[in-house]
Design a protein around this nucleic acid. Structure first.
Length: 412
DNA sequence: AGTCCACAGGAAGGGCAGGCGA
DNA sequence: TCGCCTGCCCTTCCTGTGGACT
C-alpha cells in the first residue's frame, strides 16, 4: 500500500497525484473562457432576437413611469432564447430605473427548480423571500404564506415585475389557481403595482388554463421561434470566439454542432452543450484541437449523463422497475406492463423489498416514459386487453451503467 | 352487436417525515 | 410538547377503452 501510516513521508501515489494536478495547471487549455459556452453566460448582444427584445422592452417600459406594464406571456421551445432575452431586458430595465431613481423591483423564478419553486407553497415562499420577508421552507398554512407575500408586496414601492420561467411545468403540477390569485393581486394592493411575465416551453399551455387566467395573463404575447441551423451557427461562432482559444476548433465542428442542435428543434442550449462537452473531451484526452469526432462523443456523453442523472433521482421502486425492464428488454424488443409487474414482484422478493401495487408500478412506468428513459405506448390487443408496449432505446453502455447503479444499491 | 380482457389512468385519501407556532 | 401544515409516496376504488372474439 502506498499510503504510509505516519503521514510524514510523501507516498508514490501522492506525488503522482501532485504532478497530475500541476500538469493540469501548466497545460495549455483549449478554452479561453469556458463560462461563455454555458447558458448562464450573458452575451453583450443577443443574436437573431431583435424583434423579441424590442417587443418585451416596449411592453415593460411603462414601469419606468410608475405605470404597471401589461402582463406578458412568452412562448417558445427549449433553447430559443426566452430566458436569455427576459433576463437581458429586465436587467437593462433595472439599470435604467436605478439611474432614474424609479422604484422598480424585478423577481425572477424558475418554477421547475426542484425543492425550490415547484409547488404553490414553495413558489410563494421564494417570491416572498426575494421581496425581503422571511418565510419558513415548510410548516405554514398556504394562506398564511399568501398573507406574508401580500405584506411583502405592500412594503414595496412602485412596480414589481415577477418573471415566472417554466410556468407550464408548475401549472401542470398544481393547477392554475395561484396564477389566478397573482393576476388578481393588483385589485387589493394600494401603492404597489404587480406585473407578471410568464415563460413557457409549451405552446399549447394556455389550453389547460382557466379562461379568466388566460385572458389576464396573456394581455401581451411574444413568440420565440426555433433557431435554424444558420442562426445557430452564427450564435455558436460568436460564443466559440469568446469561449475557445484561437485556432483550436477544427473545420466543421461548429457546423456539426449547429446542425445537430437544429435537428433538436433549433435548441441553442443543446448547441452550446455539445461544443463545450466536445472541448472538455478533447482537453481530457490531451488533444490540442477539438475535432468533429469529439462532437459525436459529446452527444453520446450528454445523453448518457442526462439518463443516468434522471434515474439516480428516481425513488427506489422506480429503479427496480427500470432494472426489470432492462433485463426483459435484453430478451424481447417489447414488453408489456403485466409481464414487467410479475418480474418486478420476483425481483422484490429477491432483494427483500416489499412490492408496490400494479397501479403504482403502472404510474412509475408512465413517469419513466415521460422522462425519456424508456419508450412506452398504449396498445390494444383486442380480446387480450389493453397494455403498454415498452421498449428501451438506450445504448448498451448506458444500459450497463444503469444496471450497475441498481445492482450496487440493492446488492443484486 | 355485445362481451370481455388487461390494463390505463383519475380521484380520494392514508401514512409518514419534516417543520412551524403557540 | 402538541396540533397543525405541506410534500411525497403510496393504496384503494373506480371508470374508461380499443379491438379480438363470439
Amino acid at each position: 500500500m502506498d499510503r504510509n501510516e505516519g503521514g510524514g513521508e510523501v507516498s508514490v501515489a501522492d506525488s503522482e497525484l501532485k504532478s497530475r494536478f500541476s500538469n493540469y495547471i501548466n497545460k495549455d487549455t483549449v478554452f479561453r473562457n469556458k463560462e461563455a459556452l454555458t447558458t448562464n453566460w450573458k452575451p453583450e448582444t443577443i443574436l437573431h432576437r431583435d424583434q423579441q427584445v424590442n417587443n418585451l422592452a416596449s411592453i415593460l417600459a411603462p414601469a419606468l413611469k410608475r405605470d404597471d406594464p401589461s402582463n406578458v406571456f412568452i412562448y417558445g421551445s427549449v433553447g430559443t432564447g426566452k430566458t436569455c432575452v427576459t433576463k437581458h431586458v429586465t436587467e437593462e430595465l433595472r439599470a435604467v430605473a436605478h439611474e432614474e431613481e424609479v422604484d422598480l423591483n424585478i423577481v425572477y423564478i424558475n418554477c421547475k427548480m426542484k425543492k425550490v419553486a415547484d409547488t404553490e407553497y414553495r413558489l410563494l415562499a421564494k417570491l416572498t423571500r426575494q421581496l425581503g420577508e422571511e418565510v419558513p421552507s415548510t410548516g405554514l398554512p398556504t394562506d398564511e404564506v399568501y398573507n406574508r407575500f401580500f405584506e411583502a408586496l405592500e412594503s414595496q414601492e412602485g412596480v414589481v415585475i415577477i418573471a415566472l420561467d417554466e410556468i407550464d411545468a408548475l401549472v401542470k403540477k398544481v393547477g392554475d389557481e395561484f396564477l389566478y390569485n397573482l393576476t388578481r393581486i393588483n385589485d387589493d394592493l394600494n401603492d404597489t403595482k404587480v406585473s407578471i411575465i410568464g415563460i413557457s416551453n409549451d405552446l399549447n399551455f394556455t389550453e389547460y388554463m382557466d379562461s379568466r387566467v388566460k385572458s389576464s395573463l396573456s394581455e401581451e404575447e411574444i413568440i420565440f421561434p426555433p433557431y435554424n441551423a444558420l442562426e445557430l451557427r452564427e450564435i455558436l461562432d460568436s460564443r466559440a470566439g469568446k469561449g475557445f482559444a484561437d485556432e483550436v476548433l477544427e473545420d466543421g465542428v461548429i457546423s456539426k454542432c449547429s446542425a445537430l442542435a437544429a435537428q433538436e428543434h433549433g435548441d441553442a442550449r443543446r448547441a452550446l452543450d455539445l461544443i463545450r462537452v466536445a472541448g472538455e473531451l478533447a482537453e481530457r484526452e490531451g488533444e490540442e484541437r477539438v475535432a468533429r469526432s469529439h462532437v459525436d462523443r459529446a452527444q453520446d456523453k450528454i445523453e448518457k449523463d442526462r439518463v443516468v442523472e434522471t434515474v439516480r433521482d428516481q425513488p427506489k421502486h422506480s429503479k427496480l422497475v427500470l432494472y426489470t425492464i432492462l433485463e426483459m428488454a435484453d430478451e424481447d424488443d417489447e414488453v408489456a406492463t403485466g409481464d414487467v409487474y410479475s418480474e418486478y414482484k420476483e425481483l422484490c422478493t429477491q432483494v427483500d423489498v416489499s412490492e408496490l401495487t400494479q397501479r403504482r408500478v403502472s404510474g412509475l412506468i408512465s413517469e419513466l416514459d415521460m422522462l425519456g428513459v424508456i419508450n412506452a405506448r398504449v396498445i390494444s390487443k383486442g380480446r387480450y386487453g389493453r397494455t403498454r408496449q415498452i421498449s428501451v432505446d438506450l445504448s448498451q453502455d448506458i444500459r450497463t451503467q444503469l444496471r450497475e447503479m441498481v445492482e450496487d444499491k440493492f446488492y443484486i
